[in-house]
């Protein structure tokens, strides 16, 4: 049975190719090497695994800006609201712009439904939109009867907490492969994530994930460590905490990324804030490429506390 499931997943993914590319979102997940499908314990779950929202105990938000290179950047924001006894709901927005020639956006709403105490099902509906701006030559292209298109996508996800420290997650995105085009077929491909994580204690977790997206196959892993709160107190930063993380992603088609990151958690009377930073260094990419990400979150206490 397991082999059959895996075979189906690989087969389905192999017929699709990315259009709304998965470049990772959130400085904390990317600091973990994007191995976040089985972590998914803050508002970034809206991007990686909405079922993981079940772990969130209070209203949480996150906002991330990413500048890939001159003229290419994206922004991501998400809000998650726990509904006691019924799971959690969330909404997110992702926008990308490319040198004034292209833009795309994804507006997503999601619901995490607790099937049992251990297992949670996630469903997400999203509006995908893209728009082209033509240069002087392309402006004469009769192909462009329209320069924008949009459609609906459906995501299904799963989160299972197998024990106090072990959890697994699966996310199947664009399961309906919405065809969003201005002239010829351009289906947004299915993207499949699956993985597990293990929390040694309240300070340390490791995570492993596999991604299937068309012809691209990736394995990602990362680890996160939060410093002893007592140490921060000794340093005079009462209640604040610092976490560090690192990750690696490897795949076919010259994909090899190294990720580093840290977080600074700062509780306050108004809101508990967390500032995340990550740096992604693609080792087999264009020269001089490296991506900085900054996130600001209103969140639960540091996520690793949620054993």
């Amino acid at each position: 049975m397991k082999n059959l499931v895996l075979a189906v997943l690989v087969l389905v993914s192999a017929v699709a190719q990315a259009a709304f590319f998965d470049s990772g979102q959130g400085a904390r997940p990317t600091g973990l090497g994007e191995a976040f499908v089985a972590v998914a314990d803050d508002a970034n779950a809206m991007y990686y695994n909405p079922a993981g929202m079940i772990q969130i105990k209070m209203l949480s938000t996150t906002a991330t800006y990413t500048g890939y290179m001159e003229g290419l950047s994206d922004s991501f924001a998400a809000i998650v609201v726990p509904v006691p006894g019924y799971g959690a709901i969330g909404i997110s927005w992702l926008g990308l712009t490319a040198a004034s020639s292209y833009s795309e956006s994804t507006l997503k709403v999601a619901y995490a439904y607790p099937i049992t105490k251990q297992y949670t099902l996630g469903l997400a509906l999203k509006m995908l939109s893209k728009s082209y701006t033509l240069d002087s030559v392309a402006a004469g292209n009769p192909f462009f009867s329209s320069t924008s298109a949009s459609g609906l996508g459906l995501d299904v996800s799963f989160f299972g907490r197998l024990s106090e420290g072990i959890a697994v997650g699966v996310s199947i995105e664009n399961i309906n492969a919405p065809d969003i085009n201005v002239g010829s077929s351009d289906p947004v491909p299915m993207n499949i994530r699956f993985g597990g994580r293990y929390k040694f204690d309240k300070s340390l977790l490791v995570s492993l994930e596999g991604d299937l997206n068309g012809e691209d196959v990736k394995v990602k892993g990362g680890s996160e460590y939060w410093l002893d709160p007592g140490l921060m107190k000794d340093l005079g930063a009462v209640d604040s905490e610092i976490g560090f993380r690192g990750g690696v992603g490897y795949g076919n088609n010259s994909y090899l990324n190294v990720d580093l990151g840290f977080s600074f958690y700062l509780p306050s009377k108004i809101a508990d804030l967390r500032f995340d930073y990550s740096f992604t260094m693609p080792l087999m990419y264009i020269e001089g490429a490296g991506t900085h990400r900054f996130s600001i979150c209103i969140t639960d206490p540091r996520p690793a506390f949620n054993l």
Binding site: F21, S23, G251, S254, Y255, L256, N257, P282, M284, I286
Partner: peptide, 8 residues
């Protein structure tokens, strides 16, 4: 490349 670093 794709923006995520995958060679095309």
């Amino acid at each position: 490349y794709k923006p995520n670093g995958t060679l095309v």
